[in-house]
């Protein structure tokens, strides 16, 4: 360890810790887990300090690391990191004193907030993440491409698709529960699922069937 490294890390930590905690809170079901995600993310940063890019890109790189830490956390056993103990306790205290909802004017409409949250949760993960990065982290397309490790063109396609699906979901919700349930596949702009034809054991997909002579089932 060198003093320079510690100073560099500390400056980066000071600049980013609240944004990182917000990023983690937006993606964890249990707020206490967000503290562990923050701690594990910064541990990666500390170990890979030489890889942290300069300037504004550093925050994007940080989100990319946090995204992978989150992906691991959702797949494996939930771990409690002792380094995060105090942040976790303080976070719990802060939550206890927070209003149930409504930090912004629009949030006063509790029904609308619930609908959009539900609609987003129904979307594929790739759609959800690109929407979150736009709406909550307020990132541009280039920045999102850096976080996700994909091209700007891919971000453009994903964002277009995600916005359309979210809009359709919200419209379906507004049109009523029956319409939402009955037209979910169409509402999200997806190809309807495979339909069985008359032959036993044959699945005909929306586009690609099995090669001639091959039947696939179950």
């Amino acid at each position: 360890m060198t003093t320079t490294d510690e100073e560099r890390f500390s400056a980066f930590f000071a600049d980013t810790h609240e944004a990182l905690l917000a990023y983690a809170l937006r993606r964890t079901a249990v707020p206490a887990d967000a503290a562990d995600v923050v701690a594990e993310t910064y541990l990666v940063v500390w170990r890979r300090l030489a890889d942290v890019p300069p300037g504004d890109e550093a925050r994007l790189w940080l989100y990319g690391v946090a995204r992978r830490v989150l992906a691991n956390a959702t797949r494996g056993e939930r771990r409690r990191n002792a380094l995060a103990d105090r942040v976790r306790e303080s976070l719990t205290d802060a939550l206890d004193g927070a209003p149930a909802s409504g930090g912004s004017p629009a949030a006063a409409d509790a029904v609308e907030v619930t609908d959009v949250e539900r609609a987003v949760e129904d979307l594929p993960e790739a759609d959800r993440e690109v929407l979150r990065l736009v709406a909550w982290e307020e990132l541009g397309r280039d920045e999102i491409a850096t976080v996700l490790g994909v091209t700007r063109a891919t971000v453009r396609v994903r964002l277009h698709r995600a916005r359309r699906r979210l809009r359709d979901r919200l419209a379906a919700t507004a049109a009523g529960g029956a319409a939402a349930a009955g037209g979910a596949a169409d509402a999200v702009g997806q190809t309807p699922g495979p339909q069985r034809d008359g032959r036993a054991g044959h699945v005909r997909g929306g586009r690609a069937t099995g090669r001639p002579g091959v039947e696939v089932n179950r």
Binding site: L21, A22, L25, R26, A98, P99, A100, S101, G102, G103, S104, P105, A106, A107, D109, E112, V113, D115, V116, E117, V120, L131, R132, A135, W136, L166, L170
Partner: peptide, 10 residues
């Protein structure tokens, strides 16, 4: 609508 639902803003 999604921005308004930001969990962190609350």
């Amino acid at each position: 609508a999604l921005r308004a639902a930001d969990p962190a803003r609350r």
